[in-house]
Design a protein around this nucleic acid. Structure first.
Lengths: 243, 243
DNA sequence: CGTAGGTTTGACTGATCTCAAGTTTGGTGG
DNA sequence: CCACCAAACTTGAGATCAGTCAAACCTACG
């Protein structure tokens, strides 16, 4: 079920999902110089203030981006799965405004930003696909603002689970009915603006009400219609239908 | 102090701030076909699910984007000031995933999305500038996730005020020391994930502690260093220094 | 001047946090 | 294969920040 592959295959799959590529586009992606790296869980790939000269693609494993308040509060602003480009923003913005960190052991492919920038100029369809990718990212951030700003704990966590299940499936990583969460309850708390304690109780409440079943980090969404309702989840913001 | 101007002048000023443009770029912007419109406060310019074929530039007045939960909770995800392009995302994404609404009477300039898309293809520097604009938008959303997710009421509101003051100044709209808020306390509540009642009390607390002074909607930031501290505000996420 | 929207106040409630202590799990070295 | 350890998860009790409900009070504008 894991759509393993080389960095090139993953990027092609992702960009193709985002819009049509022609033969020359594929060739251009194929000739990018990837530097592949194995990293452990909890590795900071980019940190706030960095001036990265490479972009990284997540090949295998999971990652997240996060920001912190000066008093130490941590907020995860997105989760990422295999195929995701972790920092398109550094193609155009000099300094990183957030951290990028693996949440499991992972395989990362680094590409020189200059080579990708060249593709934006010379390959209009790749430019379009990366635009779409960046704009979908932004759409997800907007939904997260709504999620942490206006939903209660149960909805927030349910929404996060729905999004994870849906994106996972779209990336070809398997069924949205049942899956293993890569992140700890602490990380769920940091993503939803709650505390670990309350995340724990809320997951129990979701299980008690029968919308999900849990065994360790394995989640089964037992009742999707009810889950969608509890989560207030409408996948439109993921813009998944190819444009 | 208000940098009034035609839509063309405003866009040129904005794109120039975002990166260099050459003479041909300026000419290309100059030949865009703008349709200018006066609209009252509270006018929905784009609504969720729309398939817009025009992009709009805010020429005069203020606007915001917002999303809602199915139970009616409203979350403002960004505020906009003159010069802002209100919906770059519709250049690449078919359906709007949020509403765009004026918060004061405003002047709007509409441009056919097809013409802007043409510029992305043919004018690399305009492509770069719009990329930067979209990526800065995304950076602001990330900061807002942190704001509503991890800061208390006082910090949240102070942060929103700092951002407004800073962006206002960057747009050439006047001093960040003293200004009139265009938005109601209800709208501040919707932007910060709080209730009107609590926004009201928190504004009073900020005034009582001496960091701001208020007279109606006029705000004076009486003590910027302390304000920055209360707000936990670091403008780096606005990426204002031209790249 | 009347009125609606915006702001302010008070009293009470409740969702989520904090602190503090267990319990389980998974990985690691002997 | 087992013993151990740290990290992750769970539970309980009490505290608090922000919400709710309800009612005035402004104040700008028609």
């Amino acid at each position: 079920m894991t759509p393993m592959g080389t960095p090139v295959e993953l990027m092609l799959a992702k960009l193709t999902r985002l819009g049509g590529l022609d033969q020359q586009d594929r060739a251009a992606i194929g000739s990018l110089r990837f530097r592949v790296q194995q990293v452990p869980a909890g590795k900071l790939l980019v940190r706030t203030g960095d001036v990265p000269s490479e972009c990284c693609v997540l090949v295998e494993g999971y990652a997240c981006r996060h920001k912190s308040t000066s008093s130490g509060g941590r907020q995860i602003v997105s989760f990422h799965l295999p195929g995701d480009i972790l920092d398109v923003q550094h193609l155009q913005l000099e300094r990183a405004d957030h951290d990028v960190e693996t949440i499991t052991a992972a395989t990362i492919a680094w590409v020189p930003a200059s080579e990708l920038r060249e593709l934006l100029r010379t390959r209009p369809k790749i430019n379009d696909a990366l635009w779409r990718d960046a704009l979908i990212d932004a759409s997800i951030f907007r939904e997260w603002v709504l999620n942490v700003g206006r939903r209660n704990a149960e909805s927030r966590i349910a929404h996060m689970l729905c999004e994870f299940a849906t994106r996972r499936e779209a990336a070809g990583l398997g069924s949205p009915e049942r899956f293993d969460l890569p992140m700890s309850q602490h990380q769920i708390a940091d993503a939803t603006g709650l505390t670990v304690v309350h995340v724990n109780r809320t997951l129990q409440a979701l299980a008690a009400s029968g919308v999900i079943e849990r065994r360790g980090r394995e989640i089964r969404i037992a009742d999707w219609p009810r889950m969608r309702e509890v989560a207030d989840f409408d996948p439109a913001y993921l813009h998944q239908q190819a444009a």
